[in-house]
Nucleic acid binder design. Structure first.
Length: 271
DNA sequence: CTTTTGACCTGACAGC
DNA sequence: TGCTGTCAGGTCAAAA
């Protein structure tokens, strides 16, 4: 589920239900996510009011007066709004109960997600403090990417998926952005010219923006009912298209492994 | 410092 | 039907 566009869509979907609401209760059914959910969350949050919601990388940040709840969806998580009292399913591990008669529910079958608490400045949390720039903000440009990759011999695809380089670029959009930029994923990061860095940063922005736009159209579905519809309607150029014809030149799309993840590319369009 | 590998989990699916 | 192996949208932490 959760590439950056889906996290952003989730944020936009849940925010109106949560903002300015007071917490009526917290339910922890299974605390064993990637890190254990803090057992004192119910005491910490009870009666507190949601002041702000933001996204940083793929983390959702729900700010209260005394600290911030940090949520991550991992590989398989989703957040939905339900009426209070809605029966929980097998993988519904965590609920935030609200005074407006709704609840926010985290469902995460693989339990790679996270629910954490940071008192004070959330940017100081160890998971957030060392992160690279947001791909959709001004700090991520050709000069930056060129400078930060100079000493890297690793493949450019691995570099753009490294959260110290830039956050929020997951496997789908790393593949799609490299196709759009016409860059072979195996290219050593340090050998990319500044012009190609400009191409790639632009491609990453465009691919993410387009996906957010599409996700936005299915936003109501995603949060209120069965979500995802619309997300999978996206047409990918290379992701998951092994053996199929390149939409641009007709060449067969290839699949290789990089860092234990699947990479898809067109050997003609991407050099 | 960079790079690689293992680890955390469940579910879906292919093949025998 | 049931077993085994592979794969999946993430990313940290430790080892090399």
């Amino acid at each position: 589920m959760p590439e950056l566009p889906e996290v952003e869509t989730t944020l936009r979907g849940i925010a109106p239900h949560l903002l300015h609401q007071r917490i009526a209760g917290v339910v922890i059914r299974n605390p064993r996510l990637r890190w254990e959910i803090p057992g004192n969350l119910p005491e910490l949050l009870h009666g507190q009011t949601v002041r702000d919601l933001q996204r940083r990388a793929k983390y959702l940040l729900i700010a209260f007066d005394r600290g911030t709840l940090i949520l991550h969806l991992g590989m398989s998580g989703n957040l939905r709004i339900h009426p209070l009292g809605t029966a929980a399913g097998k993988h519904d591990h965590f609920d935030l109960l609200l005074e407006n008669g709704k609840l926010l529910r985290l469902c995460d079958p693989r339990r790679f997600g996270a629910v954490l608490w940071q008192a004070g400045d959330v940017a100081q949390h160890p998971l957030l403090a060392e992160l690279g720039p947001e791909p959709l903000q001004s700090g991520f440009d050709a000069d930056y990417l060129h400078a930060v990759t100079r000493k890297r011999k690793a493949a450019i695809k691995l570099a753009i998926m490294d959260s110290h380089v830039v956050v929020g670029v997951g496997n789908i959009y790393a593949n799609e952005a490299l196709f759009r930029a016409g860059i072979r994923p195996q290219t050593a990061a340090g050998r990319l010219s500044k012009e190609r860095c400009a191409c790639l940063t632009a491609a990453i922005r465009e691919v993410l923006r387009a996906a957010i736009k599409q996700g936005g159209s299915s936003l109501r579905d995603y949060v209120d009912s069965d979500g995802k519809r619309g997300y999978f309607q996206q047409q990918y150029f290379v992701y998951g298209r092994t053996g199929e014809a390149c939409r641009t030149c007709g060449t067969t799309i290839r699949q290789v492994k990089q860092g234990q993840r699947s990479t898809f590319y067109c050997p003609v369009c991407q050099r």
